[in-house]
Design a protein around this nucleic acid. Structure first.
Lengths: 206, 206
DNA sequence: GGCCTTCTTGACCATTTGGTAAAATCGACG
DNA sequence: CGTCGATTTTACCAAATGGTCAAGAAGGCC
């Protein structure tokens, strides 16, 4: 039986999950090219042929991880509510993104690795689904600005800035720790506060 | 003669430069583990043993690239002048960082790769030189805030935010292109403008 | 030109890598 | 408890990888 074709058995579900967790750890650290099947198998506590019984190739494991990643990652943006209070909506978005960076740093680094190497797998979805979603939400933000409810700033760059600043705490975790110390609560709590303050009010005294 | 010990010949200088340029391309895309000496040699238009004549190991090439990277990258921050006008200093810093992202994207991605994998090579310098420099400049910014010349925002997080937003245009170039198009002037010009506006004045209407 | 050093090459090597084949073991279900 | 598909293991393979070695080609300097 070709594994992927029928509904998975209990063992399949369990082992696929174990493998994906292990692969996330390895791929997010070493990138696709740097990761080895042996390393993933060891992290999964499983022999290499056994792992390859569940995912026939290294590529399959990697694609399986990327699949759905974008969706989860984009959730908070999609929740921006055009009928809500603009500054509050933005503040909520920032908070939720910071929580993602805190709770799923390896997913963030996996994505960063895929971008850095030129998104060979995700390129199509970037230009397709992602672009459509982002353009739609950029339009919502633009409408707020046109109504005079927010200062005018290119909404695409605004979205980039929120992505960049929040994901930074996951992707550059080692640097942030080196400069701020290892206390996780302090790092992420003060980050959310500082970012909200920057994005809403900026630096200039009024 | 052990190559590294005496002053380099003309040929050595030239070939080392060629190799470093090629290695930057490969390492910045594939990371340390994913890069191969063969790939670097091919990119350098040179046989592998010949390349290894100039840099005995893959590790040596990588370290050579990282060396000095931090210094160049940190320059604009160090130029923050405590005697200047605060908002203008910040705006200049943002512009210069955007220019670095535009002109040296591979260097940015090389650094990002090193951070993502936990900075095994740079860890010490992060906790040493980098931390000292950043703390010093954070103190300058803090002083401006204490004097009432800038709104109060944790200076470390402010610096992170400027790093993250500017480097994003290099590290996530493929994503930015997918969403904004390939016109480089437009991307970087509008980015500098939008970021300055965000950091100085934020989103909230006044 | 002669000579010494620097540079380049081709052949090679041990290890790692992604993946396969077939046999052995396990587990659910009648 | 026997059987049949699902799972795991052992042994294996060809290609890729980081690196070595000895010999040849090319500079530079008198």
């Amino acid at each position: 039986m070709a594994l992927a074709t029928k509904k998975p058995t209990r063992i399949q579900a369990k082992n696929r999950a174990i493998i994906e967790r292990a692969a996330l750890k390895i791929f997010s650290r070493d990138g696709f090219r740097g990761a080895t099947v042996d390393a993933i198998a060891e992290a999964a506590g499983m022999s290499k042929p056994n792992l390859l019984y569940y995912f026939p190739t290294k590529d399959d494991i990697y694609r399986s991880l990327l699949e759905g990643l974008l969706k989860d990652w984009l959730g908070p943006l999609l929740d921006l509510d055009s009928k809500g209070e603009p500054t509050e909506q933005i503040a909520t978005y920032i908070s939720r993104k910071i929580e993602l960076a805190r709770d799923f740093p390896m997913e963030s680094r996996l994505f960063a690795n895929e971008m850095i190497r030129g998104a060979p797998i995700l390129k199509d979805v970037l230009a397709g689904d992602l672009r459509a979603s982002v353009d739609a939400k950029a339009a919502v933000i633009q409408a707020w600005m046109d109504e005079g409810r927010l200062r005018k700033i290119d909404p695409h760059h605004l979205i980039f800035a929120i992505w960049a600043t929040t994901q930074h705490y996951a992707d550059f975790d080692v640097q942030v720790r080196a400069l701020l110390g290892d206390d996780s609560d302090a790092r992420f709590g003060s980050a959310a506060e500082a970012l909200t303050s920057i994005f809403l009010d900026g630096l200039r005294m009024r």
